[in-house]
Write a protein that binds this DNA or RNA. Structure first.
Length: 315
DNA sequence: AAGGTTGCCAACCGCAGGTAG
DNA sequence: ACTACCTGCGGTTGGCAACCT
């Protein structure tokens, strides 16, 4: 038995919206709201559209104060840094950029920003004309930020309400998203973003806070390598934390990183088999590279890191 | 000028989570 | 507890325009 369709596709118009349809939808919602039921909305208005389509059109195009295109450098920085931290969770990223929609940000990232970043990194790599050193470090070494590039996590200025974090309420109740980094256990997106308000390296262990880039001419191009430097540091630090832990702590940390739960926590294991988990845990042996740790433990960061590592020859 | 390629973005699809009954 | 329905999300696609050869 398959899933019931959300609407009768045979009697529903698809494709681009006409100005008349836009006007109908906009006028109705502005006057009466959605009524809490998008599915029933098109029938009320007399539109031959799927309710989901109406919702999308309203949220991404018709609702007030929507901005299209013209992303600022500051917005670039926020998108880049959040992507490096939480991955492709566009709705959360969008919540930090007033007037932007998740779809807009997603498109912007996929079509421009990522290429912009990677292109810049490639150029810099060619300029350096030497391979990036493998990020394997001795367990007893201090954390070291590569000095070949400016080790700066981009300055962030989130629109933050101390009471609500300027995040949608649902985000505060989102399923736990946890990383354990030294004394920092991040149990929610809200906490994650609170942490994000600090310069990146200051948020982890005792790594020296990097100089904050306050240049007025700062651009994504300028900060692009910085962003990935920060991400690289994150990998390094995560790795260092793991190898310095006792086995039980490693187990907890890797579970937190892999699926957002701990062995002693209350998180459900329903969606993750123990076979999957244990197969990942094997890779957290101190004999594997930080890259492998991240690759196995932080799926949402893989794509970003994978591209970065490919370009920089990280194994 | 014409055909092919690439970039961009609006819109769609299907899944997962939440919730009302 | 179960089911059906609704909403929200992220990934993907299709079509148009700009650019290239």
């Amino acid at each position: 038995m398959g899933r019931a369709p959300c609407c009768d596709k045979a009697n529903v118009k698809r494709g681009p919206w006409s100005p008349e349809e836009d006007a109908k939808l906009k006028a109705y919602i502005e006057q009466l709201g959605t009524g809490g039921n998008w599915i029933a909305l098109p029938q009320k208005i007399g539109l031959k559209r799927c309710g989901k389509s109406c919702r999308l059109r309203w949220l991404n195009y018709l609702r007030p104060n929507i901005k299209h295109g013209g992303f600022s450098e500051e917005e670039d920085n926020i998108i880049c840094s959040l992507y490096a931290t939480i991955g492709s969770r566009w709705s959360i990223i969008a919540s930090q950029l007033p007037g932007r929609t998740d779809n807009d940000i997603k498109n912007y990232w996929n079509t421009r920003l990522r290429k912009k970043l990677l292109g810049k990194n490639r150029k810099e790599q060619q300029a350096l004309a030497r391979p990036k050193p493998l990020m394997m470090k001795n367990q007893t070494e201090h954390l070291v930020t590569p000095v070949t590039q400016n080790p700066t996590w981009p300055a962030q200025q989130y629109h933050h309400d101390p009471n609500h974090g300027n995040l949608p309420n649902k985000v505060e109740h989102h399923q736990p998203y946890s990383h354990t980094l030294s004394s920092h256990t991040i149990n929610s997106d809200y906490q994650l973003l609170q942490l994000e308000q600090q310069p990146y390296s200051a948020s982890i262990n005792s790594v020296t806070a990097p100089p904050v880039n306050n240049s007025s001419s700062s651009s994504c191009d300028q900060s692009s390598s910085n962003i990935f430097d920060g991400f690289e540091s994150f990998v390094d630090d995560y790795w260092s934390e793991l190898v310095s832990m006792r086995p039980q702590q490693q187990l907890d940390a890797t579970l937190q990183g892999y699926c957002g739960m701990g062995t002693s926590g209350a998180a459900s294991t329903e969606s993750t088999s123990w076979g999957d988990i244990t197969s990942h845990l094997q890779l957290y042996s101190p004999l594997v590279s930080p890259y492998q740790v991240v690759q196995q433990g932080m799926p949402h960061d893989i794509a970003c890191f994978e591209e970065y590592s490919t370009n920089f020859g990280v194994q």
